[in-house]
Design a protein around this nucleic acid. Structure first.
Length: 105
DNA sequence: CGAGTGACCGCAA
DNA sequence: ATTGCGGCCACTC
């Protein structure tokens, strides 16, 4: 953990720490970063912050893909499939089982 | 520099 | 059961 790092640093770090073939929710990531109610910030950082981050591994509380922004919703589904994650109707299959958690390498 | 927006979540009425 | 509102931080214009 990096207590001195800003919220963005923690979010980026956690996002990068997400293993291959695994997904996480904005709320969970925000909570892990220290602000469970700052889920919006996670989305903002993921989009404007660092394009190199695996933002496609971020999903909403329902395990669904992004809310339909700059035409990335379909791209996200494609990226997820590349990681071995199957999506149906823009919803990650077995999302509950694929939900990544710190310590579950 | 100042103000507004954003890919969300949780609770209340 | 459904709908509406508030709230946090960072980034952009």
């Amino acid at each position: 953990m990096k207590p001195d790092a800003n919220f963005r640093e923690r979010v980026e770090t956690l996002m990068t720490e997400v293993p291959y073939g695994r997904v996480i929710t904005y709320g969970d990531l925000a909570g892990l970063a220290g602000q469970a109610n700052a889920s919006r910030v996670v989305g903002g950082i993921a989009h404007f912050g660092n394009p190199d981050l695996p933002w496609h591994r971020l999903v909403n509380r329902f395990g669904g893909l992004a809310a339909g922004f700059h035409g990335g919703r379909e791209a996200q589904a494609q990226l997820l499939e590349q990681e071995g994650i199957t999506c149906t109707n823009h919803i990650v299959d077995n999302f509950e089982e694929r939900r990544w958690r710190p310590g579950q390498n």
